[in-house]
Design a protein around this nucleic acid. Structure first.
Lengths: 345, 345
DNA sequence: ACGTTGTGATTAAACGATTTATCATGGGGG
DNA sequence: CCCCCATGATAAATCGTTTAATCACAACGT
């Protein structure tokens, strides 16, 4: 009986070609001095055995790395899918692999994921961090030379100062806020509410600062409310605020950081027997596929998600290339639909 | 100047604990005979250095594998996102990692992805195959002992017979077709059209066979049309068919294999100035988030996508456990909305 | 006093690839 | 005739880990 078949190894190829393993390696990588005839024999042997170098062994020896880690906040948000897709396209072009983990908005899981990726010998880590800097600041100096790209968050000096090559890429927070607030202002609004995550989870505090600045500049009454970013919590919070505003003869205009939460606001309005775009206003973020289909359509601040993914991957593959101190800020645009009421002043 | 910092290695830990690398390894893995005091010293050293065993080296030595490959058809379909999410949850519980690649409906890319995963030393491969069996049949015998789970496709004898541990998990095609056709029949339809991918891409031919069987059984006029499964092609095809049916005084009822394509039918109807659910009918598959928001709501055959992912991952981790010859068929249910017209006969 | 047993530690070999140093051989030039 | 060099091939070290084989040493029984 033949031995149980196993994947062909370099020795097998060498043996079949009647040559040493060293020659086989050199020939297949086209590196050393190998007689043309021998090289050909080796290549044929490799082809016949369908030889493929064990990537683990190779990487162990050479120290090079071809897998890249991606830590996202959760796997159910279509937003990430498009980002991943953008990353995948470029990764495929460069022969890189993507290891995908979810932190699930949990700091411990995030830390565990990072540890794991470190052990796995990954060539870089793209992460949508939760909270400000967090455990990432500890990880970075312990993994020197491994580029980190933080995406979808505000550039954090604590991070870039941690020693490694850290780049941040995300939407241009300033522009996003301006767009949302500008739109509200144009439609006659004098007040706006920014809905953001609890302090320990929020990674886009830049947007918040920008919000205050703009409100001051434009004389809007700006409020920031922190709220767990799940559907139920946001719906509850929105219902409460919309109700209160209406009671006082006012009008609640919410700016939420995802279209997912926009729909929560719709539900809140509906539960109050009110209609978004008339009795209350929302501006979302991301322009998800569902947003155009809502009734009324959700006005939202959008960016090219695949482009975001592409940038992330590019920065992972050639770190720090052509980026300023505060990373890459991607252009955003407003998708104007009907979720913002026109107020006559 | 101190040497450039690198990740701590087992030797470093051993050195710091004043002991040999072997003892360090044994102590950290709790395997051999090591004095309690020494073990403690080693553990402390490891903790101080934040040591984490290099997974590549370990796997090279032990032959164990902890990464699993996932080859999906394309990354932009939210369907896969939920499947991935389901996989990720279980993978995380078992300490497994997910390597995600996209075949992009291209046989060569699929083959390349498989080769790559083989070289990467994955512990198993989950794949949503394109076409019937395809290159997968060559890959399997060359990678003995590596479980393969084909998902979202009809069980293929060519695959299960290829030597390895191959399991198929997907929706119960029979039930899905029955549900769709049954619904049409209840609403007075006497004819139905199944839209499916071109032969070389279709992985769910079982559904087609079932379609014919049911149509015969229920006396429906069943047509199968093959069509590239992108929005434009389906829209064109649908417009053509709907127009023709109407011209002949009939009514076109399409069964499409994804809600993505359902929206293409909506567009086709709209371009003809017609309304789905009245002038033409569609039954989709998957119940995507957008489907409920369409106007009229898209009637669709759905399954629990996270459960699918969970099954896939479970079968990857403990191959062949409690599964019959034709794999796991998941229950499906009909989400009844308004995209199917009621015909009075 | 001496072999036995057992404990705790070390040495060394492996995993599969890459790469440096070494070696054999034959031809050409002095 | 001898030396040197180019060419093509090989042996051996290495990456970081695990693990089988070995070893040092003390305690113990007879």
């Amino acid at each position: 009986m033949p031995p149980p078949p196993r994947r062909a190894t370099l020795r097998d190829v060498a043996a079949r070609a009647g040559v040493s393993a060293a020659q086989a390696s050199l020939a297949l990588n086209g590196r050393g001095r190998v007689a043309p005839a021998t090289a050909e024999r080796i290549r044929r042997a490799a082809a016949e055995l369908d030889y493929q170098a064990d990537s683990r062994a190779r990487q162990l020896r050479t120290g090079q790395r071809s897998a890249y880690g991606v830590v996202i906040r959760n796997m159910r948000n279509p937003f990430f899918l498009d980002v991943l897709s953008g990353m995948e396209v470029r990764a495929h072009r460069e022969g890189a692999l993507l290891l995908i983990l979810s932190s699930d908005y949990d700091a411990d899981r995030e830390a565990a994921a990072l540890r794991r990726l470190g052990a796995e010998g990954v060539g870089g880590v793209a992460i949508a961090p939760i909270g400000r800097a967090g455990r990432l600041t500890e990880w970075i100096p312990r993994h020197p030379g491994i580029p980190v790209v933080a995406f979808n968050c505000t550039p954090d000096p604590a991070l870039t100062g941690a020693g490694g090559t850290v780049t941040t890429v995300g939407p241009d927070d300033g522009a996003a806020v301006s767009l949302a607030l500008g739109h509200l202002r144009e439609r006659g609004h004098r007040a706006a509410t920014l809905v953001t995550a609890p302090l320990e989870l929020a990674a886009d505090w830049g947007r918040e600062e920008e919000f205050h600045r703009r409100c001051a500049e434009w004389g809007l009454r700006g409020t920031v409310v922190r709220c767990p970013l799940d559907h139920a919590s946001v719906a509850r919070m929105a219902a409460e605020r919309i109700g209160r505003a209406r009671g006082g003869g006012g009008h609640e205009a919410l700016v939420v950081n995802s279209d997912h939460l926009g729909t929560a606001v719709y539900d809140a309005a509906r539960s109050l027997g009110l209609r978004v775009g008339r009795d209350a206003s929302v501006v979302g973020h991301d322009d998800l596929p569902t947003s155009a289909l809502l009734d009324p359509g959700l006005t939202t601040v959008a960016l090219d998600r695949a482009l975001l993914g592409d940038h992330v991957m590019r920065l992972l593959l050639s770190p720090g290339e052509g980026t300023g101190a505060d990373g890459v800020r991607l252009p955003v645009h407003l998708v104007e639909r009907d979720s913002v009421a026109v107020l006559d002043t």
